[in-house]
Design a protein around this nucleic acid. Sequence first.
DNA 1: CTGTCTGCAAAAAATTTGCAGAGAT
DNA 2: ATCTCTGCAAATTTTTTGCAGACAG
Lengths: 133, 133
Amino acid sequence: MENTRNTKQKQHILSILSTAKRPMSINEIYSCCIETYPRIAKSTIYRTIDSLIKQNLIDKYYLSDNELFYQIKDNSTEHKHYVICNSCKKIFHLPNCPIHSIQDSLSEYGFDVTDHYIQISGICKECRKKADT
Amino acid sequence: MENTRNTKQKQHILSILSTAKRPMSINEIYSCCIETYPRIAKSTIYRTIDSLIKQNLIDKYYLSDNELFYQIKDNSTEHKHYVICNSCKKIFHLPNCPIHSIQDSLSEYGFDVTDHYIQISGICKECRKKADT
DNA sequence: CTGTCTGCAAAAAATTTGCAGAGAT
DNA sequence: ATCTCTGCAAATTTTTTGCAGACAG
């Protein structure tokens, strides 16, 4: 296993993601980065994101607008599922993982669940209020 | 609203998807198509898939290997969820949609669920047997 | 006929790779 | 000093677009 180094760029990407605490796309991360590191290359973003995923520090998700999004994986977000508001793009976390009951019934059929991904989207209270006025 | 025509290519793509009854990637669809229409262009696949989505005849999904997959939307698969075996890629349908209970509790908080997507993957019974030997 | 769809080629966009130098340990 | 990471440029891959002819209605 090769060693990994703690560069300013990697730290910065991590800090962007942990400040955001919501999934971000490659382009969003890139745009944030060039404010601090104007010479950063997009390939650096790709490579850093890859290595952070391999280190299990971030998660990759697909969101409704068909782009890949990356989210920090810290204790508070670990194995949480969220719903996303299509209007304001805010993220709301689900109190518990609804897969576990399914997992149990599937294992009765001999199917071992190793991975799952849930994406729920809709309109949040605030946005609905705004839409009504 | 523009009219849409029923070309051999479009029919063929639809028939491939309905025969498969499992999600297929652009490349898989393309490979199938060139067997019957050796001169079909990949851009035709992209454009046809787009128009089929607009016509609400197929659905777009993300599966575990990070490719977009497309699945026919017929009565038997409409609003069904499935689990996919990472090994043989077979699809198993879930008997019921686990979102409804979540949806109810979310609506108590004023969140309107408009869309959801569940992806569960793992290893099926058969593949596990094979792996054991 | 009329206008959409197709194949082809070219363009544009997204992602990956090679490399020499910078920087982390 | 060593070896990973970076920025840049180029290569590769994926997706979109323009166009002239084919074909469905």
